[in-house]
Design a protein around this nucleic acid. Structure first.
Lengths: 194, 194
DNA sequence: CGCGAAAGTAGAACGAGTTGCAGTTTCTTG
DNA sequence: CAAGAAACTGCAACTCGTTCTACTTTCGCG
């Protein structure tokens, strides 16, 4: 009589649900008050989960927020696959993508701030998760370059990834105004893809 | 009978001494155990200063460490003025400078880690101090380019500054091996200064 | 000199990330 | 269906950055 246990069993499904609830609770808090407002006790309460459980899912606050950023980046990547960037040259397409991304990030400055803060944290336990995020960001840039003939595309992509990250940190750290970020990225893209 | 109060009076001199003691204590702790080992109570004790006094000099741990990085960068800049980088082209000189700097930073990984962690912290109160550090780093790159004819030198310098910062953070965050940092910088310099 | 403000001291107290623990619930599996 | 392991819960406790308080010392200046 056992229902065919769809995929992965009931436990896994419940865990996926919990995980999502946790991430949503964290985002809600981040939207309201940024990094410092994402307090682990509050996240636990908001997700209706015990503090210990929260820590079982995400071993630290930074890993939680980096994971959230990972979801965001994956979503962006998916959307870009469906609606590829416009532009005749590789530089134009890269700039288009980065501007779109920047606009989205700037729309929720506190959320972005929280996630980027976590991304730049030194926590070595989060290194693997952080790398995935970087990987996705690079894939996004790479996709924008597409098949265009570019000198050493991998190197260009890596350098652009660095610039993207640094620009985000500068903005979040209050060292650069919001609009600047996209402009700096455009400058870098034009220099590297000329 | 009053001794001619050299410069700036006795108070200012004592404060300069205290400040230096604090920075030295912080560096000693950082050398031993990195960012987390730089605990404000221990810094205060090591510098033979009360905790409250420490906070009067440096309003936060991050500002303390960023200030330390600022000293390091200024020293490097001074040294480079005396012994300018070797190399025929701008790219070669920039690479030489960045390699020298990287080697120095990699020699004390824990100290570097502590300082870079602070530099990438989002604390907006530290923005001014952080900007000074960036300014110095850019000046160093700029000096290496020197008078060479380069397209949009300011933009190139800014982008290289971003890459330098991001490479440091990657290394410190455990996402890239030590030697890699200098190599990535070389790649970026060659791409931007070709 | 001698006073008053600024700077320093010791130490308690608060907040938030993280950990540990004892007891309960929920799955999976045989 | 009956373990029994793994996952959860609620909560106390610990750490370390930061703040606050009450008191003392030091220095520049009239």
């Amino acid at each position: 009589m056992a229902q065919p246990v769809a995929v992965e069993g009931r436990r896994a499904r419940n865990q996926a649900v919990r995980r999502k609830r946790v991430l949503e609770a964290a985002m809600a808090l981040a939207a309201a008050g940024g990094y410092e407002a994402v307090q682990m006790r509050d996240v636990a309460e908001g997700a209706d989960v015990a503090l210990g459980t929260l820590y079982r899912y995400f071993p630290s606050k930074d890993q939680l927020l980096v994971a959230a950023l990972g979801e965001w980046a994956s979503t962006l990547e998916r959307r870009l696959k469906q609606k590829p960037p416009a532009g005749a040259t590789a530089a134009d397409r890269v700039i288009d993508v980065l501007r779109r991304a920047s606009r989205a990030l700037e729309r929720e400055p506190r959320v972005t701030g929280a996630m980027v803060t976590a991304l730049s944290s030194p926590d070595p336990d989060a290194a693997a998760t952080k790398n995935e995020v970087y990987e996705t960001l690079r894939a996004i840039i790479s996709g924008a370059i597409g098949g265009a003939a570019v000198d050493s595309p991998d190197e260009v992509v890596r350098v652009l990834g660095y610039v993207w990250f640094a620009a985000l940190v500068s903005w979040v750290g209050g060292m650069a105004a919001a609009g600047l970020m996209a402009d700096e990225l455009e400058v870098a893209a034009r220099l590297l893809l000329r």
